[in-house]
């Protein structure tokens, strides 16, 4: 009797850890663009990483600034050197939480719109965002797609007057990430 209870206890413990409640994405696609009559600037990062805790609704997204690829190499250098200062602030980070977690059932396939509220940190500056994210739960995986608008000003990124006409005031950020269960 004692033994069987002990076994149940151990199984219970093991189940606790194997139950997938965290989902990980290693190669998410994050891209942004800004359009002006002078120049269109677009950059893609296909190495964005993120983790979701489906139990608490917490989400963390991490992006290496140097992994953004621009059409023109010189743009990329200026982006890293002069604007986001990648040596000083190598990562862009988002720490947030799904506010309507009760409307989403991660164990049931389907499409859900998650309201994600949190803080985006770029260039050492925190800024709060609320982003609607389309979440498609499909068996073991979750696909998340979303977009939001931001600006260089929000993150105290100075743009000299000479190039001000070439860099859009509003920058649209898109993301497309596929998550799979995270096992230790």
């Amino acid at each position: 009797m004692k033994k069987s209870i002990l076994i149940i206890a151990i199984i219970g413990l093991a189940m606790n850890f194997s139950f997938a409640q965290k989902f990980l994405c290693r190669d998410g696609h994050v891209w942004f663009f800004g359009t002006t009559p002078m120049e269109n600037i677009e950059a893609h990062n296909k190495q964005a990483s993120s983790i979701i805790n489906t139990e608490t609704g917490e989400i963390v997204v991490s992006v290496l600034m140097k992994s953004f690829e621009f059409e023109k190499a010189l743009m990329q250098e200026h982006f890293n050197e002069n604007y986001v200062e990648s040596d000083k602030f190598p990562k862009g980070k988002f720490n947030g939480k799904i506010t309507n977690l009760n409307e989403i059932d991660f164990s049931k396939p389907g499409s859900y719109t998650a309201q994600v509220k949190g803080v985006l940190n770029i260039h050492g500056v925190d800024k709060e965002y609320e982003i609607p994210v389309e979440m498609r739960v499909d068996g073991e995986t979750i696909n998340a797609q979303g977009k939001f608008a931001t600006s260089a000003e929000d993150f105290k990124i100075e743009i000299p007057s000479v190039v001000r006409d070439k860099i859009a005031k509003q920058i649209d950020v898109n993301l497309n990430m596929s998550f799979s269960p995270y096992k230790k």
Binding site: V60, L64, N95
Partner: peptide
Amino acid sequence: LESLLDDAVEE
């Protein structure tokens, strides 16, 4: 969760 992410993803 943040440090978990840092550990899980190779730089």
